[in-house]
């Protein structure tokens, strides 16, 4: 944090993400579907781990309820 190329952009992002996670949860969309992490370009292994972990999380959660809603709409 604070190491943003644009000074404080990530501070702003972090606030929004904190809000959005809770809003999603209240709307019935698992908040784990949104993740925000800071990984610098020098931290390749952290990035890979993070992505693999996120993929696993999403797989375990199954398809997004939004997708199902969209499918119903189209039908």
């Amino acid at each position: 944090m604070g190491d943003c190329h644009y000074l404080y952009g990530n501070v702003a992002t972090e606030k929004r993400v904190r809000f959005l996670k809770k809003l999603l949860a209240f709307s019935g969309i698992e908040e784990e579907r949104l993740r925000c992490k800071w990984v610098s370009s020098a931290e390749a292994s952290e990035f890979v781990e993070e992505m693999q972990d996120f993929t696993e999380t999403l797989r375990a959660l199954g398809p997004s309820p939004l997708k199902q809603a969209g499918a119903q709409r189209a039908a």
Binding site: Y8, V11, K15, R16, K22
Partner: peptide, 27 residues
């Protein structure tokens, strides 16, 4: 409620601008 829980701000009750419209702590 979320904005209050996360940032201790409730529009109309708290003073000043919304935390989403100021750069915040780091700045």
């Amino acid at each position: 409620d979320i904005i209050d829980e996360e940032f201790n701000y409730r529009p109309g009750y708290s003073e000043g601008k919304s935390p989403l419209n100021i750069l915040g702590s780091a700045a």
